[in-house]
Amino acid sequence: MPSETPQAEVGPTGCPHRSGPHSAKGSLEKGSPEDKEAKEPLWIRPDAPSRCTWQLGRPASESPHHHTAPAKSPKILPDILKKIGDTPMVRINKIGKKFGLKCELLAKCEFFNAGGSVKDRISLRMIEDAERDGTLKPGDTIIEPTSGNTGIGLALAAAVRGYRCIIVMPEKMSSEKVDVLRALGAEIVRTPTNARFDSPESHVGVAWRLKNEIPNSHILDQYRNASNPLAHYDTTADEILQQCDGKLDMLVASVGTGGTITGIARKLKEKCPGCRIIGVDPEGSILAEPEELNQTEQTTYEVEGIGYDFIPTVLDRTVVDKWFKSNDEEAFTFARMLIAQEGLLCGGSAGSTVAVAVKAAQELQEGQRCVVILPDSVRNYMTKFLSDRWMLQKGFLKEEDLTEKKPWWWHLRVQELGLSAPLTVLPTITCGHTIEILREKGFDQAPVVDEAGVILGMVTLGNMLSSLLAGKVQPSDQVGKVIYKQFKQIRLTDTLGRLSHILEMDHFALVV
């Protein structure tokens, strides 16, 4: 994948999101292997301009796509893939009243899908469409860049269908997702969380590099694949309309690839034109409109599966009536509230959605109805927002919020430890010299600072030695090549209790 991002070429006709291997024109390309080798690009942008032909009021008969309808489940399912879809609609009884809503608040519980998330729908649909058009064949390999849930859905379907599955996901995604993927037989590649989507090191860039190296491999490409919004247009939206008897006044959905909100909203605009569509985008993402909503100094966020630093091709923002931004604290607070007060075992993005819903639905009156999409299960986040310690460490809970008995030293300040200034190293000294210094002084790690004293990161003896043994660096290389740029900081005025929580999850903390 090139470091400079080429513009994806656009073909003359058809839909841009065809499933299957992508040609340089962004659509299915038939021909000899030699032709494909000559024409197939190194990668295709996940934010390529959409060429979708959908228009409100256009006859369904003019759609270029294969459409399906929700099917009634048999008493005995032939395999677990038949437990994807037909998820329950559940009334939220307490939270709406707590925040003064007059309307009825309903939750579409997508964590009841077989793999635990709304992404099971698009995973199965992308595979079925690729099999139907002859792209996927027995023994082929599926590769997908994902925040985890699409990966789980694909790995689940691949396990049943017999495909090899490789999932490329950023490091910030939970260990629970990784464990589930491994249990399903998927191979996992992790990428830096802070890598831009168009960087060769991003999950998108690495996935395309693997595709170019592995024979008979395919990126189904949830960011561009029409099967993504079509899955929701054909099934999720129809289920909502049936469950609500066609009567709903507002739908609120958090947005990642945009397939969920695009597919549902398009069908609702056709069948229930008075329904307002509300999009939820986390602070630090750029999906919301108008652009002024996205202006923030924050560039990272903890909530998973929603928000991006690019506009995915499948996201149709014209069908969203209003956007709201959400933050991590309210997302996790509301997710825990949904679990504790409503018994809905949902993930953090569901918290984002409901946090926005109780604001947006203030305009609705008694007798009206708001539906929220709860995308995934708490299963993926047992060591994250479900953990009091994690919430404390991230600053989303305060010590006084917890009532468990603490040891005698818990409320003492870090400054009472009488710490001395640490050994520091410059980023320009060599790895070999740094190892000598650390061994001589008896230290395992040291902060790396520039000549102005600005902290650049941390270097550890173990990481340097393993990097040297693996051949990633040489003793003569500058130590700046092996620094940890993500590390926890703590102030002298913070409590030892807070430091204790940090050290339970990290090997060190830097006192500043």
Rank of each mutant, 00 (worst) to 15 (best):
P70R: 15
W43V: 11
E213R: 10
F99Q: 08
T53C: 07
S217V: 02
I264S: 04
R196C: 08
S202M: 02
A60C: 10
P21W: 11
Q242M: 14
T150A: 02
S27V: 12
H65W: 04
L156H: 08
P16R: 02
K267V: 09
G162Y: 09
K119F: 06
V10E: 09
C165P: 02
R190E: 02
L42R: 14
D120W: 08
M89V: 10
P88Y: 04
K94W: 10
P192R: 10
I152N: 04
T13M: 02
K75F: 06
T135I: 02
S147Y: 07
T257Y: 02
V90R: 10
D179Q: 02
T260W: 02
C272Y: 10
G20F: 12
T262I: 02
L105A: 07
D79L: 06
L56C: 15
S32T: 06
S32N: 02
L248H: 02
N212H: 02
F99D: 02
G263C: 02
F197V: 02
P59F: 02
R276T: 14
K271V: 10
T87F: 02
F99R: 02
I219T: 02
S73A: 10
N216S: 12
A265W: 06
A130T: 07
P33E: 14
K172L: 02
R51G: 10
T236L: 07
G100S: 07
D221V: 02
S227D: 15
D234F: 07
I219G: 02
Y163T: 02
P200E: 07
I122R: 02
G100L: 07
K271C: 15
M173Y: 09
T262S: 11
D140V: 10
A8S: 02
L77E: 06
G151C: 04
R45F: 05
V255P: 05
K177G: 02
W208G: 05
P46F: 05
E187T: 15
F197S: 13
S175A: 10
I264A: 02
T150V: 05
P16Y: 15
P215M: 09
C272T: 09
L105N: 04
I166G: 02
G256S: 02
W54M: 08
G148T: 04
P145H: 04
T146G: 04
E37W: 14
G139I: 05
N113C: 08
L220H: 05
H66K: 04
L101G: 02
